[in-house]
Every structure is written in structure tokens, then in C-alpha cells.
């Protein structure tokens, strides 16, 4: 059931270059379903992944993965999947009255990616909550720098994918600034939004795809107006279904 997302993101196609995906969570919507779908794709294709986790635990992704018919922990044991829990490291240091700098976080990420690079040709990276870096009281400049460094790191490797998940608390907030900065560097932006009218049993939310990276592709070089694509999504225990607006 994750095929809808995989096809829409076009990550099932062979790419010669790396791609950056930015996922914006608007009005409190949870975008972890995209990570679960993408992880399933990586596990099934035996692609190496580094999960930089700040929001959800690996147990969460494992339990969701089991329902979606893949076993994340087996991948972790095999070395295919590496998990870097930034939140845990940060809190451990904080309670010891020490400071964890964003530079040292980036160094750890770089080290892990390079280690995996020795074994696998391509290393995909997923960051599941950039906004939590702001909650840890790092400033916008430092967060933007570390994200740019991660983007540059992934771009070095051909065919690698980077997913950055960013929560937007509201439009007047620093989280909005950071997400906009990231969107400028993205190949594709996925905006995930709750229904404005509230919850529904038929639809879980809106998914809007924007393509800032397409303007550099030959195919779209001369089209001035790249229109965003809009979908409705419905979450199930075993996956996600995308629906065209008006078809529910």
C-alpha cells in the first residue's frame, strides 16, 4: 500500500543524481507515514539508510513496518539501516551539564555516512524532525548550516536520497523560516496538512507536491509555471492511499 507514495515521489526510477525531499508538516499534521513508506522501499531494495531520529523512536518505525510487511530491526542487525538518535545524545549531555554542539552532531552524521559508504554504493539519509533542533535552542543560522552540510554530504553520492521532515508550528514562527529555507534547496517539497474542517473518517489530510528542483531539468527548462500537484491521502494500518481531490 506504500506504492502510491513511492510512485508519486518517483524514487522507484533509476536516477543518476541525488535528490533532496523536504516534508513540511502544516497545522500539526504528522508526516511519519512518508518515512514508513520510504523505509519499506529501501528495505525491499536493499538500499542503505541512515535514520537521524529526533521525533519518533525506532520502535515506532519497527512496529509500523511490521504491519507494512517489512522488518526494520533485521535491516539494522544486517547493517543496512543505521540509526542515530540525536535526541538521546542531546538529553544525556544536557543532564550531565554539558553542551552538544551542532558541529559535533554533523561530525557524527558524516562519520556514520562514510562508514556505510564503504559497504554500500549509495547511502540514503532520513531526518525525522528538523524542528526539534530549534526546540533544543539551537538558532536558525546553525540549524540552516547543519542542514546545508547534510545536503552537501548526500549530494556527493550518486543516486542517494535525503528526506528532511520539518514541522511548521505557525506562519509567524522560526519553524516556518527554517522550513522555507530548506524548501529552496529541495528537489521536491511535500506539504502535509490536516483537514481544516477537522478530522474525518474518509480522508486523513491534504498532500501538496511542489517541484522547485524541476526548473533545472531539461524537460521543464522552458515552462515558466510549474504547478503543484494536490492529493488527498487516507492512512490505513498497512499503508497509505492517495486520492485525487473530489474523488472521495
Amino acid at each position: 500500500m506504500s506504492s502510491d507514495i513511492i510512485t508519486t515521489l518517483e524514487i522507484d526510477k533509476e536516477n543518476s543524481s541525488s535528490k533532496i525531499f523536504v516534508v513540511k508538516e502544516i497545522s500539526g499534521c504528522d508526516s511519519s507515514f512518508i518515512i514508513s513508506c520510504v523505509l519499506g522501499h529501501f528495505v525491499k531494495n536493499r538500499s542503505a539508510v541512515l535514520i537521524i531520529s529526533t521525533h519518533n523512536s525506532i520502535k515506532h518505525y519497527q512496529n509500523v513496518g511490521l504491519k507494512m510487511n517489512y522488518n526494520l530491526i533485521k535491516g539494522v542487525d544486517a547493517g543496512l539501516i543505521n540509526v542515530y538518535d540525536v535526541g538521546n545524545e542531546y538529553v544525556d549531555k544536557l543532564l550531565k551539564n554539558e553542551h552538544l554542539s551542532l558541529d559535533s552532531i554533523f561530525e557524527s552524521i558524516k562519520e556514520k555516512v562514510e562508514q556505510m559508504q564503504h559497504k554500500y554504493d549509495m547511502v540514503n539519509v532520513i531526518v525525522d524532525g528538523i524542528s526539534h533542533l530549534l526546540n533544543m535552542q539551537y538558532n536558525v543560522r546553525d540549524v540552516n548550516t547543519v542542514c546545508s552540510n547534510i545536503i552537501d554530504l548526500v549530494r556527493c553520492y550518486k543516486n542517494s536520497l535525503l528526506f528532511l521532515h520539518c514541522n511548521v508550528a505557525n506562519e509567524l514562527d522560526v519553524t516556518h523560516v527554517v522550513s522555507n529555507l530548506l524548501c529552496h534547496k529541495a528537489h521536491m517539497v511535500l506539504e502535509v496538512e490536516n483537514l481544516t474542517s477537522g478530522w474525518s473518517a474518509d480522508v486523513s489530510g491534504h498532500l501538496t507536491l511542489k517541484y522547485p528542483g524541476r526548473k533545472f531539468e531539461d524537460e521543464y527548462m522552458f515552462s515558466m509555471d510549474l504547478k503543484p500537484t494536490q492529493y488527498l491521502f487516507k492512512l490505513f494500518d498497512r499503508g497509505v492511499k492517495l486520492l485525487a481531490p473530489g474523488t472521495v
Binding site: S32, K59, N63, V64, G198, W199, S204, L235, F236
Partner: peptide, 17 residues
């Protein structure tokens, strides 16, 4: 105001708002 989906994909939908 908020319901999360932990260990699952589907968040609980309350019977009424």
C-alpha cells in the same frame, strides 16, 4: 487538540469534535 499515532500509522479519530 492533538492525537498522535504511536506504533501505528492511523491516528484515532474522535467520535465528535
Amino acid at each position: 487538540t492533538k492525537l498522535s499515532a504511536i506504533y501505528t500509522l492511523v491516528p484515532f479519530v474522535p467520535p465528535s469534535l
